[in-house]
Computed example of a mutant assay.
Amino acid sequence: MRAADCDILIVPGWSGSGPDHWQTRWEDKLSTARRVEQEDWYKIHRDGWAARVAAAVEAATRPVVLVAHSCGVPAVAHAAPLLPAGTVRGAFLVAPPGERAIRAIPGADPAFTPYPRDPLPFPSLLVASRTDDYCTYDEASDFALAWGSALVDAGDAGHLNTASGHGPWPEGLMRFAGFLAKL
């Protein structure tokens, strides 16, 4: 699959991925990409965030590929049972937060955790760092195993966001292109 053949839905995490974040840059660069907007980027709510992902998927006019970062990753997992069968062709999941990290966010919906443990109904690839302050590699590996995701070890990469030096993240874009090619 090529980027031009699908609707790429960018699913940011808490705070919505600012202007220098790789998700925002990819959204600007990829002509078929658009952001899944949340009602409030600072209030993580399981049902609300999952419903927004589901609504964006339902509004798509082509096959969908999800690109989620941080809190957007469990939002995709929560949304998976709500998605129309066969519409989502794959999910590129990056730096999920651990469940303890979610519970530490002021005002976070307690129902956001625990994360679903059912396999995702579409192919997925989970990219995780060994030095993510919000999720241990072992936790990320456990999520990948539960969801049926291929796991990519990003090494010493922090939370794979702007603060960890991953503004443009060209290596991630190359990995994403490889993921698309296999769909």
Results as ranks from 00 to 15, higher is better:
residue 2 R to C: 04
residue 4 A to R: 13
residue 4 A to V: 13
residue 7 D to F: 04
residue 11 V to M: 01
residue 12 P to N: 01
residue 13 G to I: 00
residue 14 W to S: 01
residue 21 H to P: 07
residue 27 E to H: 05
residue 28 D to Y: 06
residue 32 T to G: 12
residue 34 R to N: 07
residue 37 E to V: 07
residue 37 E to R: 14
residue 39 E to Y: 06
residue 46 R to S: 07
residue 46 R to C: 09
residue 48 G to W: 02
residue 49 W to Y: 11
residue 50 A to D: 07
residue 52 R to Y: 09
residue 55 A to D: 14
residue 58 E to W: 10
residue 67 V to G: 03
residue 72 G to D: 00
residue 72 G to K: 00
residue 76 V to C: 06
residue 88 V to W: 07
residue 89 R to P: 08
residue 91 A to H: 00
residue 92 F to K: 09
residue 92 F to T: 11
residue 96 P to L: 04
residue 98 G to A: 11
residue 99 E to V: 06
residue 99 E to M: 13
residue 100 R to F: 06
residue 102 I to T: 04
residue 104 A to V: 02
residue 113 T to C: 14
residue 113 T to Q: 09
residue 114 P to F: 07
residue 116 P to Y: 14
residue 117 R to W: 01
residue 121 P to E: 04
residue 125 L to E: 14
residue 129 S to H: 11
residue 131 T to D: 05
residue 132 D to R: 08
residue 133 D to I: 13
residue 136 T to G: 11
residue 138 D to P: 04
residue 140 A to N: 03
residue 142 D to M: 06
residue 145 L to R: 15
residue 146 A to Q: 07
residue 146 A to C: 08
residue 150 A to N: 10
residue 156 D to P: 01
residue 157 A to I: 05
residue 158 G to W: 06
residue 160 L to P: 04
residue 160 L to G: 00
residue 160 L to F: 05
residue 164 S to V: 10
residue 167 G to N: 09
residue 170 P to S: 01
residue 174 M to H: 13
residue 178 G to F: 07
residue 180 L to V: 14
residue 183 L to C: 12
